[in-house]
């Protein structure tokens, strides 16, 4: 049985710099392997529609005839399945999360 077990810990941290960061002024550093926003490279895409077919949430929409690639950011779960199966490596996950989506519109490329 001990008393004031917490005091040592509390005292130590009263004298140490806080482990939290001052968020808006000090942006969060992205970790190297983090799964963030999906990035599309238009140049190499052949509009094969594999990503749209395989997307587990149906966030992607590809029109082969019009050469359009679209994403619904609110549906995307950044799972990276499309990145894995893209035959032309046109898709990539960046480490940052990007700005929040505020509308339900699809983003066309």
């Amino acid at each position: 049985m001990g008393y004031f077990e917490m005091s040592k810990l509390a005292l130590k941290w009263a004298l140490t710099k806080p482990p939290t960061s001052r968020y808006p002024f000090e942006p969060r550093r992205a970790l190297a392997g983090s799964r963030g926003q999906l990035v599309f490279t238009k140049d190499s895409c052949v509009y094969c529609t594999v990503c749209a077919k395989k997307c587990p949430t149906g966030a992607l929409l590809v029109n082969r005839a019009q050469k359009k690639w679209a994403i619904d950011r609110l549906r995307c779960i950044s799972c990276g399945y499309c990145v894995e199966i893209c035959p032309k490596k046109s898709l990539d996950l960046s480490t940052s999360h990007g700005s929040p989506a505020v509308t339900r519109d699809r983003e066309f490329h």
Partner: peptide
């Protein structure tokens, strides 16, 4: 204060998880 410290340590674990798996 104990709650804060538990979660401080948890955050380190979450960083490992994020660095190795991405989420």
């Amino acid at each position: 204060s104990l709650f804060m410290h538990s979660w401080r340590v948890r955050e380190k674990v979450l960083n490992i998880i994020e660095a190795t798996t991405g989420g």
